[in-house]
């Protein structure tokens, strides 16, 4: 089975959900024209990233009666969508979230489980921590979603893998940093290294959709990537500019790679659990 995965690296307007929604709908049309089956937007794609005191004013619910999501759910009849937004729960906690929309329904919502609150980041001050990492079934097989800092930690991708995800969809609003004499920014090199490593170690498809544009002095670097289960690069978007990158995923590659390299078959989860129990009971 072959699917076309589109990665939208967009610049957003900070706190202007309506304007960002219009850009989403525009990108959806472009992705449809390029025969995409699935379109992944970056982290907080509907709102912008450094929201601070804007958080409560930009929150939405991924339901049909929501004025923003009703348009996106309607569009998801034509192609599956991953969108980034601020999710507000019934008790008014706000999460950095990704929603997977398909056939007019919200199949899954992931709440970011690692909120960086150090250096230039201050997410823990404004957002609630997600508390689950789950894979879910889609028409393309089992999928897992993570948001930025989630995959700076090794455990969430590992959990998704064990929970059956063969396609991992990562989204970020990653500020560029670490300029030296190298060809790429340090932050870009780091993210590319780990996403490639996850694809290789988990013999899975891994795609990363990262936004572009500035918020004050912060630059988001883009550079969407998709890797196949051999850890080989399938497609890469440009740095620093808006782009729609389409990667063709040959899902049969999962079978071929895992027949050669049975890392999933051989993964000793009982051993992991036993040792984790021991380590955590100290």
């Amino acid at each position: 089975m072959q699917i076309n995965l589109a990665l939208a690296q967009i610049a957003t307007k900070l706190g202007d959900v309506q304007s960002n929604l219009e850009k989403h709908l525009d990108l959806i049309e472009q992705a449809k024209a390029r025969k995409a089956d699935l379109l992944v937007f970056p982290e907080l794609s509907l709102t912008g990233y450094v929201l601070q005191d804007l958080v409560a004013t930009v929150a939405h619910k991924p339901t049909e009666d929501d004025p923003v999501f009703k348009h996106l759910l309607k569009a998801s009849h034509d192609l599956d969508l991953v969108v980034g937004f601020v999710d507000e729960d019934s008790r008014h906690r706000f999460y950095i979230a990704s929603a997977y929309l398909s056939g007019g329904r919200t199949l899954h919502v992931h709440h970011k489980v690692y909120l960086p609150t150090y250096g230039l980041f201050d997410e823990g001050r404004f957002f609630a921590w997600g508390d689950s990492v789950r894979s879910f079934d889609t028409r393309f097989g089992r999928v897992g979603m993570l948001i930025c800092e989630d995959f700076w930690h090794a455990s969430p991708p590992y959990l998704l893998w064990l929970d059956g995800a063969d396609i991992m969809l990562f989204s970020s609003a990653s500020p560029g940093r670490g300029l030296n004499d190298k060809e790429k920014l340090e932050s870009a090199r780091w993210v590319e290294r780990v996403t490639k490593a996850y694809a290789s170690m988990f013999t899975s498809f891994v795609a990363h959709s990262n936004r572009v544009g500035y918020e004050d002095g912060l630059l988001f670097w883009g550079g969407a990537v998709a890797y196949d289960p051999n850890g080989e690069l399938i497609a890469q978007g440009p740095y620093f500019e808006e782009a729609l990158t389409v990667a063709s995923l040959d899902l049969n590659q999962l079978r071929r790679t895992r027949a050669r390299l049975p890392l999933l078959r051989d993964e000793r989860t009982n051993l992991v659990q036993k040792e984790l129990d021991r380590i955590l009971s100290k």
């Binding site: 300029l179 030296n180 544009g213 002095g217 620093f240």
Partner: peptide
């Protein structure tokens, strides 16, 4: 201690910053 930078990258980032923020 080598403080040298990739000047092409710096140029791209800083010119786009000026344009964006203005």
């Amino acid at each position: 201690i080598d403080l040298s930078i990739n000047t092409n990258l710096a140029r791209t980032i800083l010119t786009a910053f000026i344009k964006s923020e203005i």
